[in-house]
């Protein structure tokens, strides 16, 4: 569902245009500097309103709007774990005024496990703004105090330990990688979303869960996080060791949900200056005091950062490789 666009006056735009035309001769020297945006911008979100990525997108667009003269509209197009919205985005005009906010590895899972008809290189990434990590979590009154205890228990009695996963998300992928690398075979219960998974854990129906490290913070002292997937300690769970510290031989990639912004590759390739302008504009917003205060207020500053197009692309492709490795299991085999 779309938000009512802010009706910015076209007079303002016309005036700006007139000034530009008048100043054109003077600007001939800087002909490479591109103006962005030149019309209202739509941010397509392949998830329904209300999720964590929706809140991130709305917060961002509200602040970003202040930095230029046009409206930025969030367009929710949920369905099929983000697949439908991704296709909608790719079908939209590649003119730099349609942006995409997605989640990795969900995007790669669309491609590998759901047979999506697009590729990763159809997207050019601006930034991964939020990097969440996976937590291995148990209920506060669980007998497991450390991750080693849990792993040992699984090794001794595979059929008697139940772990839950939320499919379609980064935590699922990490869970698969973790179990596969350490060669563990607990009973795995799958859920469609984090909410159901958490309730199941709190009700004691599963022994442990692969969940979102940041998301679990809302449960506070009702749960205990045994380990996190990040390579360094996760600020929200200072007592939980990174998995690779507990099991150095595993050498697992730091996987979780990564929320990113992207544009059409076709647009970025044909209009490199305009793309630069978009990136620069975004960077300005991200680093602004107002926006930093906003994310601090929400608490999401713990997982937010600016990596830039190049590094973001690297991280995303790295995760894609992991998805491919587990492609079979992700497709229900």
């Amino acid at each position: 569902m779309t938000v009512q666009p802010k009706m910015k006056t076209t007079v303002k735009a016309l005036f700006a245009g007139a000034v530009l035309v008048a100043a054109a001769p003077g600007m001939a020297l800087s002909a490479n500097a591109a103006e962005w945006p030149t019309e209202n911008v739509r941010l397509i979100l392949p998830f329904s309103a209300g999720g964590s990525i929706d809140r991130f997108a709305r917060g961002l667009t509200q602040h970003w709007e202040e930095f230029h003269d046009y409206a930025m509209i969030v367009d929710n197009r949920g369905g099929a774990s983000g697949l439908l919205g991704s296709r909608t985005f790719l079908g939209s005009p590649a003119n730099g005024h349609y942006l995409f906010a997605g989640i990795q590895p969900t995007l790669s899972m669309n491609i590998v496990a759901q047979g999506a008809d697009f590729d990763l290189d159809d997207f050019t990434f601006i930034n991964i703004e939020q990097r969440d990590y996976t937590s291995i979590v148990v209920r506060a009154d669980s007998p497991y105090e450390t991750i080693e205890e849990l792993v040992e228990s699984i090794r001794e009695n595979p059929g008697s330990v139940t772990m839950s996963m939320a499919t379609g998300s980064g935590t699922h992928l990490f869970g698969l990688a973790f179990l596969d690398t350490l060669d563990l075979n607990p009973n795995i219960v799958t859920f469609d979303g984090g909410g159901e998974q958490r309730t199941d854990l709190l009700g004691g129906h599963s022994d442990a869960a692969f969940s979102s490290a940041y998301g679990d913070m809302t449960l506070g002292d009702q749960v205990r996080v045994l380990a996190v997937s990040s390579h360094e300690t996760f600020p929200g769970w200072p007592d939980a060791p990174p998995v690779n510290e507990a099991f150095p031989e595993a050498d697992l990639p730091a996987i979780g949900d990564n929320r990113f912004l992207a544009v059409h590759t076709s647009f970025a390739e044909e209009n490199p200056e305009a793309f630069e302008a978009i990136v620069a504009s975004y960077q300005e917003v991200f680093n602004s005091e107002a926006y930093q205060a906003h994310i601090e207020n929400l608490g999401s500053d713990l997982i937010s950062g600016y990596y830039g197009p190049e590094e973001s692309k690297e991280i995303i492709y790295e995760i894609h490789e992991v998805v491919e490795r587990y492609g079979d299991m992700l497709s229900g085999n």
Binding site: A49, G50, G51, R55, G195, R198, T199, T218, L219, L298
Partner: peptide, 27 residues
């Protein structure tokens, strides 16, 4: 109390809470 939707309409409302920065659930 649990953040689990009972049907289509409550599913949308879970979203409304999260939009407000509130996580429906025990907390």
């Amino acid at each position: 109390s649990l953040g689990i939707p009972g049907g289509l309409a409550t599913a949308v409302m879970v979203g409304a809470f999260m939009l407000q920065g509130l996580i429906p659930g025990p907390r």
